[in-house]
């Protein structure tokens, strides 16, 4: 699953623009991820501050 570290996120929308599924949305100062997310990790890669992380659920 995609974890959003809200204490790190700058709510800039960089991730939203690259999401191939359109699964992310920036709602004012709140980043939302919906069930279209495939955990591809593109958003986590481009985030300027490292606020997104794809977590392997089995390891949690």
């Amino acid at each position: 699953m995609l974890e959003i570290h809200r204490d790190v996120c700058g709510y800039c929308g960089c991730c939203v623009s690259v999401c191939p599924e359109g699964a992310l949305e920036l709602i004012d100062a709140y980043l939302e991820v919906d069930d279209q997310c495939t955990c591809c990790g593109i958003c986590a890669k481009v985030c300027p501050v490292g606020a997104l992380e794809v977590r392997d659920e089995e390891k949690i």
């Binding site: 800039c12 960089c14 949305e25 593109i42």
Partner: peptide
């Protein structure tokens, strides 16, 4: 940059990873 409206109208606005300036 975080546009969603056009996408909801059927326009693909995805920026290629190599072409987003982080």
């Amino acid at each position: 940059v975080e546009s969603k409206f056009s996408r909801w109208c059927g326009v693909d606005t995805t920026v290629p990873v190599r072409e987003i300036m982080s």
